[in-house]
Simulated assay, not measured.
Amino acid sequence: MPYLLISTQIRMEVGPTMVGDEHSDPNLMQFLGATKRNMLGNHFWEYYVNDAPRIVLNKLESCGYRVVSMTGVGQTLVWCLHKE
Rank of each mutant, 00 (worst) to 15 (best):
34 A>P: 01
26 P>Q: 06
41 G>P: 00
55 I>W: 03
69 S>E: 15
35 T>K: 15
61 E>H: 11
38 N>P: 02
49 V>G: 02
8 T>D: 08
66 R>G: 05
2 P>M: 09
42 N>E: 15
15 G>I: 07
10 I>S: 13
50 N>I: 04
43 H>V: 05
17 T>W: 05
23 H>T: 12
4 L>D: 05
49 V>P: 01
46 E>Q: 13
38 N>F: 00
29 M>P: 00
6 I>C: 03
62 S>M: 11
24 S>Q: 02
55 I>Y: 06
45 W>E: 09
40 L>K: 13
57 L>N: 04
16 P>M: 07
72 G>K: 14
72 G>E: 15
68 V>T: 09
68 V>Y: 06
3 Y>V: 12
26 P>Y: 01
76 T>D: 07
61 E>S: 11
66 R>K: 15
31 F>C: 05
58 N>R: 11
26 P>S: 05
11 R>T: 11
74 G>Y: 05
22 E>H: 06
72 G>F: 09
49 V>L: 00
6 I>R: 05
9 Q>W: 11
7 S>P: 02
43 H>Y: 02
76 T>I: 14
13 E>I: 11
22 E>A: 07
8 T>H: 14
30 Q>A: 14
20 G>W: 01
17 T>I: 06
28 L>T: 03
15 G>A: 08
4 L>F: 05
78 V>A: 04
78 V>R: 07
71 T>N: 13
76 T>C: 08
12 M>V: 06
50 N>Q: 13
74 G>L: 08
76 T>L: 10
18 M>N: 14
7 S>H: 12
42 N>H: 13
56 V>G: 04
40 L>P: 08
70 M>P: 00
7 S>D: 10
30 Q>C: 03
47 Y>D: 02
10 I>R: 12
12 M>W: 11
59 K>A: 08
2 P>I: 07
31 F>I: 04
77 L>P: 02
40 L>Q: 13
77 L>E: 09
6 I>P: 03
8 T>L: 01
32 L>V: 02
52 A>C: 00
1 M>D: 13
65 Y>N: 05
83 K>Q: 10
67 V>A: 07
21 D>T: 13
20 G>C: 04
29 M>R: 03
59 K>S: 05
43 H>I: 04
68 V>H: 08
2 P>R: 10
57 L>K: 04
10 I>C: 12
39 M>Y: 14
34 A>C: 02
2 P>F: 06
50 N>R: 12
59 K>D: 03
4 L>V: 04
58 N>Q: 13
79 W>Q: 00
20 G>R: 00
60 L>V: 06
69 S>T: 12
5 L>T: 09
72 G>T: 15
12 M>Y: 11
54 R>A: 14
37 R>L: 11
11 R>D: 10
13 E>S: 12
33 G>Q: 03
58 N>G: 07
76 T>H: 10
67 V>P: 01
53 P>Q: 04
2 P>C: 06
17 T>F: 06
37 R>I: 15
81 L>K: 00
30 Q>T: 12
82 H>G: 03
64 G>T: 07
11 R>V: 11
48 Y>S: 01
8 T>A: 14
31 F>Y: 15
69 S>H: 10
41 G>Q: 08
44 F>W: 10
73 V>L: 15
64 G>Y: 09
27 N>V: 02
3 Y>T: 13
39 M>K: 09
1 M>I: 11
18 M>W: 14
56 V>D: 00
14 V>W: 10
14 V>S: 14
57 L>P: 02
66 R>H: 13
8 T>M: 05
53 P>V: 02
33 G>R: 04
5 L>S: 10
